[in-house]
Design a protein around this nucleic acid. Structure first.
Length: 428
RNA sequence: GGACGGGUGGCCGAGUGGUCUAAGGCGGCGGUCUUGAAAACCGCUGUACGGGAAACCGUACCGGGGGUUCGAAUCCCUCCCCGUCCGCCA
């Protein structure tokens, strides 16, 4: 969330930012509520002070009648205090509710626009989209012919949007994990496998909304737990409430988790096959940095994502995400869109990774700070980035590496882990 | 899952209803002494919000939430976490 004082001091700027990002937040109301909060807090403090004085005088009083009189006085004061406190709580609750709807500020260079139509292409990868002298199949068809993914079984056992990976698809999943991890460990990331569930307060701290009609999150009945949508949630929660040693920053972590998404409201649009599923595995990068270091870290994350897809020989483009498409916590976001020959009429780019600089937006909510000199603390910056989202990476591999005979070549970079050069249909 | 014991400042740890404005120690900062350092000694040393030019003052915070009371770190309820033992289990 934003710094409440910053909002009060810069209402016009915040309002403009909300508008650019398509967020409806009543900034004026918030400013008014903050003023109310201040005066109400003063009132509560004053009542508490008087009540405390009375309580102390009772401890010293000897005369029983005097004590009784003072007790009554104290009781009356405490009742007034409770009433004022209730009013204060109501003001705070309303102000907080508005504050939570305010997205992070936006990087001045982020393209302004309502949706992904305004995304700005920054660069392309080293590989070219493949040229086929046959009609390429999409990954659903390929996976069926090669017996790699069983969507029908997933639907029967669990529901639409679930699937069984089988045979070489399993080897590809594990190979992709190892491939990503190899690079990240070389780059000094601490590898982790995180819980797949997290407390709702951690979800909220990272900017996810655990319950409600529009939630993308599966929650566990009769608990305060939810299935995570990404290891960003668990890695962000890792240091919640802690004060980090500035000398230890940046902290670079990568986490493997399963990711669960309800995809509420996504029905019908481009939801064929693996592109939009309710469960997938992801290797996620995460960093805690000093404020002045987060911009470089974002570029670094983006470079690593490019390295991974260049290494796989997949064509992609990098886009600077438009303000209206940023999501709440991101200050700036770069997406990698990889070439998917089976998507659309004659192939399309589809999002495969995403990296965001969330500045102090998550850290403020999660209470993650570092020491600044002798006294004082400041909030760290947090960043996240996809190393490999397995399901979408599988789409790109199957569709880009398909051969005229219906088999799929295994990219050089993965062969050691897959253990073969080519995935062929059974009996072929 | 059950029983018992715990959760207190950056860290360790005392504290069973009012002088807690949280003892004591460690660490940190400043000073005295010293050629310098160490040791010793003296002083300072939590966070947030509000008031004030400042010194300083007020309020809240002892795992989270709720309750009892004029008054709660302390008593009660509840949840979370840690430890020990038991049960179950890949």
């Amino acid at each position: 969330m934003l710094d409440r004082r910053f909002v009060v001091e810069n209402p016009d700027l915040v309002e403009q930012n909300c508008q650019r990002r398509g967020a409806r937040a009543d900034v004026r109301r918030f400013v008014q509520l903050e003023a109310d909060r201040k005066s109400k807090q003063f009132e509560v403090d004053e009542l508490n002070r008087r009540a405390n004085e009375v309580s102390k005088s009772i401890g010293k009083a000897k005369d029983p009648a005097e004590r009784e009189a003072r007790k009554n006085e104290g009781r009356a004061l405490r009742e007034q205090t409770a009433a004022a406190q209730a009013e204060l709580d109501a003001v705070v609750a309303e102000a907080d509710a508005i504050l939570r709807t305010m997205p992070n500020l936006s990087h001045p260079d982020a393209p302004v626009g309502a949706d992904d139509q305004s995304n700005l292409e920054l660069r392309r990868g080293s590989a070219e989209p493949p040229k086929f002298d046959f009609k390429p199949l999409d990954h659903v068809e390929l996976a069926e012919r090669l017996q790699l993914i069983d969507f029908e079984a997933g639907a029967k056992v669990t529901g639409h949007g679930f699937y069984f990976l089988k045979n070489e698809a399993v080897l590809l999943e594990l190979a992709l994990q190892r491939y990503a991890l190899d690079l990240l460990v070389r780059e000094g990331f601490t590898p982790t496998i995180t819980p797949d569930l997290a407390r709702n307060e951690i979800l909220q701290g990272t900017g996810y909304i655990p319950r409600g009609p529009e939630t993308q999150i599966y929650s566990i009945a009769e608990t305060d737990l939810s299935l995570v949508a990404t290891a960003e949630i668990t890695l962000g929660g890792l240091y919640a409430g802690e004060i980090l040693d500035a000398a230890a920053l940046p902290i670079k972590l990568c986490g493997i988790s399963h990711c669960y998404r309800t995809e509420a409201g996504a029905g019908g649009r481009a939801s064929r096959g693996l592109y939009r599923v309710h469960q997938f595995t992801k290797v996620e990068m995460f960093a805690y940095t000093l404020p002045e270091a987060s911009e470089d870290m974002l570029n670094y994350f983006c470079d690593l994502e490019c390295q991974l897809f260049d290494g796989l020989g997949i064509a992609y483009r990098v886009v600077d995400t438009a303000t209206g498409d940023l999501g709440g916590p991101a200050y700036r976001k770069f997406d990698l869109e990889a070439w998917m020959p089976g998507r659309g009429e004659a192939g399309e780019y589809g999002e495969v990774t995403s990296t965001s600089n969330c500045t102090d937006y998550q850290a403020r909510r999660l209470g993650i700070r570092f020491r600044t000199g002798e006294k004082g603390t400041a909030f760290v910056h947090t960043l996240n980035g996809t190393a490999i989202a397995i399901s979408r990476a599988l789409i790109t591999l199957l569709e880009n590496y398909q051969q005229p005979d219906g088999s799929v070549a295994v990219p050089e970079a993965l062969r050691a882990w897959v253990g073969k050069e080519r995935i062929a249909a059974p009996g072929q």
